[in-house]
Each structure stands twice: as structure tokens, then as C-alpha cells.
């Protein structure tokens, strides 16, 4: 256990990136952006139209427009990254055993990558039969 570097020279070697800072900033920015994206999403699907009138045609028509594809893809990407990084924080904080921590991360990251792939695929690679 304990801090890995015993001397500040070692700490210096260990500490040569700003990666964690960028993640920290990303969490704050993506959090705020997601709030607005999701408010927009809900506004569109629950306030402007009656929830019960949403069917396959409605969704398919909307997703045939590039703007909406990008909009939804942004939600997908930001949510997965934001949530995934949050999960990484939790794992770093709570899984004591380094090996266990590593494998849990492998599983979670694979799952996230798969979800992202699947989502992107269905957004961009399918014309929903609308033309």
C-alpha cells in the first residue's frame, strides 16, 4: 500500500501528465452539456409531442436527419464517457486488490466500448426505411 514514490524524484517521474486534470475538466463540462442535451431531448419527446404518439415512424423520421443523428450521438458519447469515467473513479476508490481492479476495469471498458459501437452503428449505418 501507500504512496508509490518514496522520494520526490520518483514522484516527478510518476507525475508527468496532465491527464487527470483533463478528465476532471471533462467531467465538469460534459456534465453541464449533458444536462442541456437531455432537457432538450425530453422537451422534444415529452412536452412538444404527446408521449403516446411516439412510434417507430416518428423516431425513424427524426433520426433520418443528420442534425438529430449528431444530437443523439453526442448524448450517447458524452453519457458513456462521463458515466464510464465516474465508474473508474469509483473502482479506483473502492476496489482494493490491484488485480481485481484491473479486470473489473477491463470488463467495464469493454462493455462501454460495445455499447458505444452498437449505438453509433444504429445511428449512422441504418436508414430506418425512410426516404
Amino acid at each position: 500500500m501507500a504512496i508509490k514514490s518514496k522520494r520526490y524524484q520518483e514522484a516527478r517521474l510518476e507525475a508527468s501528465t496532465n491527464l487527470e486534470l483533463y478528465w476532471w475538466v471533462f467531467m465538469r463540462v460534459s456534465g453541464v452539456v449533458l444536462v442541456f442535451l437531455l432537457i432538450g431531448h425530453m422537451w422534444m419527446n415529452a412536452v412538444l409531442v404527446d408521449l403516446n404518439s411516439i412510434d417507430y415512424d416518428y423516431v425513424a423520421k427524426r433520426l433520418s436527419q443528420t442534425t438529430w443523428k449528431v444530437y443523439d450521438w453526442l448524448i450517447l458519447a458524452l453519457a458513456l464517457l462521463h458515466g464510464g469515467n465516474g465508474l473508474r473513479y469509483v473502482l479506483d476508490d473502492w476496489v482494493r486488490d490491484p488485480a481485481k481492479r484491473f479486470w473489473t476495469k477491463v470488463v467495464i471498458y469493454s462493455l462501454l466500448a460495445f455499447l458505444f459501437f452498437l449505438g453509433s452503428l444504429s445511428l449512422f449505418n441504418y436508414d430506418y426505411g425512410v426516404n
Partner: peptide, 11 residues
Amino acid sequence: KALGSGSGVWR
């Protein structure tokens, strides 16, 4: 350098 690393303040 020490504070901004993975084991620094961002934890």
C-alpha cells in the same frame, strides 16, 4: 507535477 498526477489532488 506531484499534485497533478494520478495520485494527486484529482483523487
